[in-house]
């Protein structure tokens, strides 16, 4: 089957699951809206329930509902959030850039650091510098991200006051220039980005270290050295390029975890990304909003995989022909 159709099918399955999962749970949204834990809100009467069901189209047969759902998505309408009283697509669009800012910059940083440290370790495999670095990186990456975040927050924001405590920018601020705005946003992002970077570097470091160590034993490395090539050429053109191939898949998987990975960190820093949005959505059982977030997450996974696939083909000529690899 063609790759494109594979992606389309996957996307379709995600859409369907996204539609089916909430409907497979017992009850419907209005029972939850009415049945608050503290019994403080008013109960809906039978008439009211019927009115709302009709209003939201929940009284119609499931196939019709599904059809409407698909039509809405094609039109870009993700529904209306009960808790925020705002359109879901608007909400997500507002929050998405912040999440992307955190995730992408921490991804880039952790890649740079991970590749650098990983290759340093691989070149010095089994010597003392490698062992020390390995231990430090492993210990750091085993600490949960939110814990690192808390420590950073306490030390650098609360005690030293170098960075703001929370949020993505100063509220109600007026910026004199674009630079000013960038500075404000940047300083807000530093701690969350560092936290995420620390949490993600470990995996990349390990991967580069192992992959490069394997590559170093390959025959073509000996061929390269026998040719008397310069060291940087041997290291970067011959070794690292081969060693980074498996990394691409990994980056794709991490990009896919765009929301998931950042949820806790965003909450620690009260950062207005998709992660905090999801937390409130869960707390309020805001199904349209949850569905919207899930949809964005799922789509981003597919997108990331697609990017990785096409990128990999560019870098590894062996997978170009029908994915046959020697």
């Amino acid at each position: 089957m063609d790759k494109k159709w594979q992606y389309f099918l996957t996307f379709f399955v995600i859409l369907t699951l996204n539609f089916a999962l909430p409907r497979m749970m017992p009850g419907d949204p209005f029972l939850y809206i009415s049945g608050d834990e503290n019994d403080l809100t008013a109960h809906y009467s039978r008439d009211q329930l019927e009115y709302y069901r009709e209003y939201y189209g929940l009284d119609q047969p499931i196939t019709i509902q599904y059809f409407h759902y698909l039509k809405d998505i094609v039109l870009g309408d993700l529904g209306f959030s009960y808790s925020h009283r705002e359109s879901v697509s608007q909400l997500i669009l507002n929050r998405l850039p912040w999440s992307l800012l955190l995730v992408v910059s921490s991804m880039v940083l952790s890649l740079l650091v991970g590749i650098f440290l990983g290759s340093y370790s691989a070149w010095r495999r089994n010597r003392w510098n490698d062992s020390v670095l390995y231990t430090v990186v492993m210990v750091l990456s085993e600490i949960p991200a939110f814990l690192i975040g808390l420590v950073l927050l306490v030390v650098f924001a609360a005690t030293l006051g170098w960075f703001p405590l929370s949020g993505a920018k100063t509220h109600f601020a007026f910026y004199e220039s674009l630079l000013d705005q960038g500075w404000d946003i940047g300083s807000h992002a530093v701690l969350p980005v560092i936290t995420l970077t620390i949490a993600r570097t470990g995996g990349i470091y390990l991967m580069v270290r192992n992959s490069l160590s394997t590559v170093l034993t390959k025959d073509y490395m000996r061929t390269a050295r026998a040719k008397g090539l310069k060291e940087y050429r041997i290291r970067y053109l011959h070794a690292l390029r081969n060693a980074l191939l498996p990394l691409i898949t990994r980056i794709a998987l991490q990009l896919g975890g765009l929301v998931g990975g950042a949820v806790l960190v965003e909450n620690v820093f009260a950062y207005p990304g998709l992660g905090t949005l999801m937390t409130t959505a869960v707390a309020h059982r805001d199904y349209p909003l949850l569905q919207g977030i899930f949809l964005v997450t799922g789509t981003s996974v597919i997108l990331a995989n697609f990017l990785a696939d096409s990128f990999y083909q560019k870098l590894d000529p062996r997978v170009q022909q029908g994915g046959r690899k020697r």
């Binding site: 073509y220 000996r222 390269a224 000529p317």
Partner: peptide, 10 residues
């Protein structure tokens, strides 16, 4: 001659 005596990606 062996499988990977030449760099596979060049």
């Amino acid at each position: 001659n062996a499988t990977e005596v030449l760099n596979p990606v060049m």
